Amino acid sequence: MSRKGNYYDNTFIESFHSVLKKELIYLETFSTRAEAKKRIFEYIACFYNGKRIHSSIGYFTPNQYERTYHPVA
């Protein structure tokens, strides 16, 4: 933990929120809150973790990275 008021703690989640808004939220119109929750879940579980590569983990998807470094027995 860093000291109180250190904004570096939120850097990663704020970056994720920025990507989420640019790639999903601003491109679609949702009829209900339930529909928005469903689409956000699908985006994170299916696209963001399944297909989108990340430079910070060697241009792997998060799923590939997990399988590479933490193989299932």
Rank of each mutant, 00 (worst) to 15 (best):
Y48L: 04
F16M: 10
K37Y: 15
K51F: 12
R52A: 03
F47I: 03
H17A: 02
E35P: 06
G58H: 05
E14P: 04
I13D: 01
K38S: 13
V19L: 13
Y59F: 15
A36N: 03
R39N: 11
S31V: 06
L20D: 02
I25M: 10
V19W: 10
R33E: 14
S31I: 07
L20S: 01
R52H: 06
L24Y: 08
V19I: 15
I25H: 02
R33K: 15
I57C: 02
E35C: 06
G58M: 04
N49W: 11
G58I: 01
G50D: 07
C46I: 14
Y43N: 04
A36Y: 08
G50I: 02
L27K: 15
E28Y: 15
E42K: 12
A45F: 13
I13L: 08
E23N: 07
E28R: 12
E23V: 08
Y48I: 00
V19T: 15
E14F: 05
K21D: 05
S15K: 13
N49A: 07
G50C: 00
R52M: 10
I53W: 03
H17S: 01
E42Q: 11
G50S: 03
R39F: 07
E23F: 04
E28H: 14
Y43T: 00
T29C: 10
Y48N: 02
I25E: 08
S18F: 12
E23I: 07
F16Q: 06
L27M: 07
L27Q: 15
I44E: 06
K22F: 08
S56Q: 11
A34K: 15
A34G: 08
Y59D: 11
K37S: 12
F47N: 09
S31Y: 12
I25D: 09
A34V: 10
H54D: 02
K22D: 14
I57G: 00
K38G: 01
R39E: 15
S15L: 02
I44R: 05
R52P: 04
I44P: 01
F30V: 06
H17L: 09
R33S: 08
E23D: 10
I44W: 12
L27E: 15
H54F: 06
I40A: 02
S55H: 01
I40M: 01
I44F: 09
K37W: 11
K51N: 09
I13W: 09
S56L: 03
L24M: 06
